[in-house]
């Protein structure tokens, strides 16, 4: 083999590590959850309304964890979506260069702060603050966790949406201004509709990011699986449950140990679907402007 060929081989091997990683993830999740589903029926897993694998009376219904995950995610997205899209419109249609140059790195910091720090904020700052308005708010709750998570994902929504807005041909903006439209009219009647698929992608990715977020909920939401949509009471999420079990001393190959892989594969499927929907939309969207 020549030196050139050898180098190419090494490079290729490095790239293939990513495929091995995927295979590894699938293998790990599937093998452990298959052995889990040998002991617990998939029907029970999907329909039982309680999740108490660590109790004496064990229940294996994933629903409480899924609703907990979706609850915090919806709270987070309902914070990040309006703020993020407003930022995107403001930065692409209103702000001058200087303002952009200063604020964009600052916004990135929001996504760079370690999640364990956000968890602390949710527990030690936001919950006590909210309790002064909502007296029956529990010390652990999905509301604070969701709000703080929302702040964290603002830059995901804003930067992807801004990219989508700036991909809209300038000529459309000029056409609208030329007719006497205000910046606001141009933004909402021309730019946002033209960038809609890119904006949708940013929202889906924000959902996916929030679903997979772990530490904020593990710290501030309570680690108590509960089938509820009440944002004021303690709940758990798929991710928080995995951390909770991993932190404790659960013997390998026990059923409790396998539950984290069953939870893991549920999480993987959820985020995999969302990510690929967004890839599909993005691909179609690219073709539209090519």
């Amino acid at each position: 083999m020549t030196q050139e060929k050898f180098i190419e081989f090494i490079l290729k091997l490095s790239a293939i590590v990513t495929i091995l990683t995927t295979i590894g993830i699938l293998y790990v999740l599937l093998s452990e959850s298959i052995s889990f589903f040998k002991e617990v029926s998939i029907i029970e897993f999907l329909t039982n309304k309680e999740w108490t694998p660590l109790f004496v009376k064990k229940n294996f219904g994933i629903l409480p964890l899924v609703t907990g995950t979706l609850l915090t995610t919806f709270i987070a997205v309902s914070v990040a979506l309006p703020v993020g899209i407003t930022i995107a419109i403001y930065l692409s249609e209103y702000a001058n260069k200087k303002f952009k140059k200063i604020t964009k790195p600052l916004l990135e910091i929001l996504a760079a702060v370690p999640t364990v720090v956000y968890g602390f904020f949710a527990l030690a700052v936001v919950t006590p603050f909210l309790q002064s308005f909502i007296p029956n708010l529990s010390g652990f709750n999905s509301l604070s966790a969701g709000i703080v998570m929302g702040i964290m994902i603002i830059p995901y929504v804003s930067s992807l949406s801004e990219d989508a807005l700036s991909a809209v041909p300038k000529s459309l903006r000029n056409a609208s201004y030329g007719m006497g439209a205000t910046r606001l009219q141009t933004s909402f009647r021309v730019m946002v509709p033209a960038a809609s698929s890119g904006i949708i992608v940013s929202v889906i990715l924000a959902f996916s990011r929030a679903i997979g977020e772990t530490m904020i909920v593990a710290i501030a939401a309570g680690q108590q699986p509960r089938l509820t949509v009440d944002p004021t009471v303690p709940i758990s999420t798929i991710t928080a449950y995995i951390v909770q079990v991993a932190k404790g001393d659960v013997p390998h190959n026990s059923l409790e140990y396998k539950t984290i892989f069953a939870a893991g594969i549920s999480l993987f499927i959820l985020t995999f679907l969302l990510n690929n929907i967004s890839f599909y939309i993005r691909k179609k969207f690219r073709e539209q402007y090519d």
Binding site: T18, I242, G264, T271
Partner: peptide, 15 residues
């Protein structure tokens, strides 16, 4: 690679 970038970090922990 696009997909791996979207896998939650806790799943990497399981791996």
């Amino acid at each position: 690679i696009s997909n791996l970038a979207g896998v939650p970090s806790v799943i990497y922990g399981l791996l």
